[in-house]
Amino acid sequence: MNGLDEQGLKEKLGIESWRHLSKDRFLSFVSEMPNMSTDVALKIIDQFPDFKSLVLDSLGDVHEQATNALTSNWKSQKKVHRAFAEYRAILRQELDRDGLTSEDRFRILAMLGEIIDKEAAKDSEHKAFAYKLTTTVGGAAVIGLGIAFAVLGGKSEIGGGERT
């Protein structure tokens, strides 16, 4: 721990008092908890009338932001898949044209193969984004709750003893 004190933390978060700690800045506060002594963390937490609600509300906001990001990404994905489908339909029509040489048909088939590969890559990109977002948000939530409740556990003597 680097022993971040209360005033230093307020300055780092850009607030004048703990009454000005918004839900957005609360997550920054939680991420700084490992850099504080337990005494400083408990002193700060004592100034919050309902710490548990602030934790749960903040995590709810993070969940909502992640859900919105996934929804937006999926809408974009659907547009891309529609464009790929239209392109494949055009190439199929080209294959049906009379008078195409074997060379023309092979070129169109190669274009179909390329577009299928590109669409598969886009799908994999979306899945990787969704996985990364889910694991990042989930990890942040677990870490944030773990830190917050570890400090609270020491405060309320959960687990049989007070923290030192």
Rank of each mutant, 00 (worst) to 15 (best):
G146P: 14
I147S: 08
T136A: 10
R163C: 06
A150W: 15
D123L: 06
A150S: 15
S156C: 01
S124F: 12
E119G: 10
E125L: 14
I158D: 02
L145V: 03
A121V: 00
G154Q: 11
E125H: 14
D123R: 07
I158Q: 10
S156Q: 05
L133P: 03
K127R: 15
V142F: 04
A130I: 03
A128C: 02
T134M: 09
A128K: 05
F129C: 02
L152E: 12
A120L: 05
G154E: 11
A141E: 03
L133E: 10
G161L: 12
A121I: 00
Y131D: 04
A120M: 04
I147K: 15
E119A: 12
G159M: 12
I143P: 00
D123A: 06
E125S: 08
E162M: 07
S156W: 04
G160A: 13
A150F: 15
E125G: 02
K127C: 06
E157F: 12
H126A: 04
S124R: 15
T136E: 06
A130K: 06
G154N: 09
A141V: 05
K155H: 09
A140R: 09
L152T: 11
T136W: 01
A128T: 08
L145C: 11
E125A: 11
E162K: 08
K155T: 07
L133V: 07
L152K: 15
K122C: 03
F129H: 05
A121R: 06
T135Y: 15
F129Q: 07
I147H: 11
G153H: 01
A128W: 07
K132C: 01
A128E: 13
A121M: 01
A140D: 08
A141S: 13
G144K: 14
I158T: 11
G144P: 15
S156Y: 10
G138C: 13
T134G: 08
G159R: 13
A120I: 03
G138Q: 10
G154C: 14
F129W: 06
G159E: 05
G159K: 13
K155I: 04
G138M: 07
L145G: 15
T135F: 11
A130R: 09
E157V: 11
S156A: 03
F129L: 13
F129G: 03
A141W: 00
A150E: 13
F149W: 01
G159P: 06
A140K: 08
